[in-house]
Design a protein around this nucleic acid. Structure first.
Length: 486
RNA sequence: GGCGCCAUCGUCAAGUGGUUAAGACACCGCCCUUUCACGGCGGGUUCAUGGGUUCGAAUCCCAUUGGCGUCACCA
């Protein structure tokens, strides 16, 4: 029922940034391996010295850990095919590159990359080095001249491979250039190291982005050149972002927070991000469920559920998923976590934080909204009398002016020690009954006068509870004074 | 531009020749309500276009259009 030998890998280059598209690729590779009781490998592809970023490997480790994507083999963990960092495997690539030359599928090229060459089809180089006599090659090598090793592509015919999502894909061989395998600095290129490592590490399923669809024939030719068995290819559709004009393009920084890190900082829970991202381009075949724990994702995951068309990243839906996680959180846990996003608070709010957090818990879709949500409790907004207008409850500024004095008097008689929500509510309710005013009208007036803002987390009495007696009355009086000017 | 991939509501999507074309987000309306939110109920000309194949097409084929990718000593 399960194949113990399934092995997938995530092979990022260390850029210090975990794009949401890469995270999704890692997730799917992980989910597939785990769903099949297989092995998930983390391999670092750091063959570009010019793009190396310090601490980037730590960053990747931390990110994967936060996302609960845990490798079975990695640079830190080691494993049967260590090392798992490409820059530590240079001798391996050199050996295999030379072997491919021997096999007749690659050749030495001594062209200078900075020099202009006769323009062949492929721009900066031509294929003349293919035909270099052996004695010329030997002389260059003996002389210690710099060189690269290029793959020798077939000039005719086409190369076909099978992709789980797309079926057979064929590319005419004449479209394939004699790509560099081993660079001048001795480092392998992605297209080479990737194939060597995937084979050596016994990767069975290559799950990666669709940008590699066109270069896969080159990889296939490499496997065939060595006489190696082909892995199974799965090319994922890209994650898109929505542009201001409504069009879409591959998700990038201009679409806002698009790295896992950015999203966490914006107040989305790691599990919620993973949950949402899992659904971007995949959906379970056996359920309409939308909220999944990592364990549930593993249980439901199958390659058949992968989508081959691009998916647009939707912050609204992410917000909904995150909101579901937020609401499901233990109240105390939410309060703690939310507190770290709230910033500096005045004493009265600090004292009422548990209540405030409870009000926020069902109202926000991400923690980053908290400061703006509670700002009105710290500084009363300077508001206009129009704010009192509410059609449904038939509220007008005039009515507010009529009702407020009695409320203020009532509240002034409530001792500080009895200034709690239930009591305030009870007192106001009694007052409402005594005066015969509609509850909605009265509460609206009080809430606006105290909050100075149309939409608030919590109703009139809840806000006054948070503000405290002194503060509430000060606000009410000030509001009344403003109304008196009318 | 060559080559390649893709195409179901605004978005994520189910669907694999015969369905009233699911579900979710968003949106709109109603209910609930001390505002908002939560929750409940309800709503919407969705199969890019044009040709085929077929008794029958969102499903198969071709073309067109559009989107995306790729064409580095980056990955």
């Amino acid at each position: 029922m399960t194949d113990q030998n399934i092995r997938t890998r995530f092979a990022p280059s260390p850029t210090g940034y975990m794009h949401i598209g890469n995270l999704r690729t890692a997730l799917y590779a992980y989910l597939y391996a785990k769903a099949q009781h297989g092995t998930f490998i983390l391999r670092i592809e750091d063959t570009d010295r010019t793009r190396y970023v310090a601490d980037a490997v730590d960053f990747i480790n931390r990110t994967l850990k936060l996302a609960e994507i845990v490798p079975d083999e990695s640079p830190d963990l080691g494993g049967p095919y260590a090392p798992y960092v490409q820059s530590e495997r240079m001798d391996i690539y050199k050996k295999y590159a030379e072997k491919l030359v021997e096999l007749g599928h690659a050749y030495y090229c001594f062209c200078d990359p900075d020099e202009d060459h006769s323009q062949g089809k492929f721009g900066g180089y031509d294929r003349t080095c293919r035909d270099l006599p052996q004695d010329v090659i030997d002389a260059h090598l003996k002389n210690g001249d710099p060189y690269v090793i290029r793959q020798k592509m077939p000039l005719t015919g086409e190369t076909t491979y099978f992709d789980v999502l797309h079926g057979n894909i064929s590319i005419p061989n004449e479209e394939l250039e004699d790509q560099v395998l081993l660079k001048r600095d001795g480092m392998p290129t992605y297209n080479f190291a990737n194939v060597i490592d995937d084979h050596l590490m016994h990767v069975t399923h290559i799950i990666r982005g669709s940008e590699f669809i066109t270069s896969t024939p080159k990889h296939v030719l490499l496997y065939q050149g060595y006489g190696w068995e082909l892995p199974t290819f799965i090319h994922l559709a890209p994650v898109m972002g929505k542009n201001a004009d409504g069009s879409t393009s591959k998700l990038s920084k201009r679409h806002g927070a698009t790295s896992f890190d950015d999203l966490v900082k914006a107040g989305y829970l790691p599990q919620a991000i993973v949950n949402y991202v899992a659904l971007l381009g995949w959906n379970p075949k056996d359920t309409n469920q939308e909220i999944f724990s990592m364990q549930e994702l593993i249980e439901h995951f199958s390659l058949e559920g992968l989508s081959k068309s691009p998916a647009v990243f939707d912050y609204d839906k992410l917000g909904w998923v995150n909101g579901e996680y937020l609401k499901a959180m233990d109240a105390a846990e939410f309060a703690d976590k939310a507190r770290t996003f709230a910033g500096d608070l005045p004493d009265y709010l600090e004292a009422h934080w548990t209540e405030l957090a409870a009000l926020l818990q069902t109202r926000i879709s991400r923690m980053g909204e908290i400061p703006e949500q509670i700002q009105f409790l710290i500084n009363c907004p300077d508001f206009d009398a129009d704010l009192y207008v509410n059609k449904r409850n038939k509220v007008t500024p005039e009515k507010a002016k009529d009702l407020l004095p009695a409320v203020i008097e009532l509240l002034e008689n409530i001792p500080e020690s009895e200034w709690q929500n239930d009591n305030l509510y009870a007192k106001l309710e009694a007052h409402i009954e005594a005066t015969g005013v509609k509850k909605g009208l009265m509460m609206w007036v009080v809430r606006i006068a105290a909050a100075g803002q149309k939409v608030t987390p919590g109703g009139a009495t809840e806000i006054m509870t948070l503000l405290g007696k002194e503060n509430s009355l000060a606000r009410l009086k000030k509001s009344l004074a403003k109304l008196a000017e009318l």
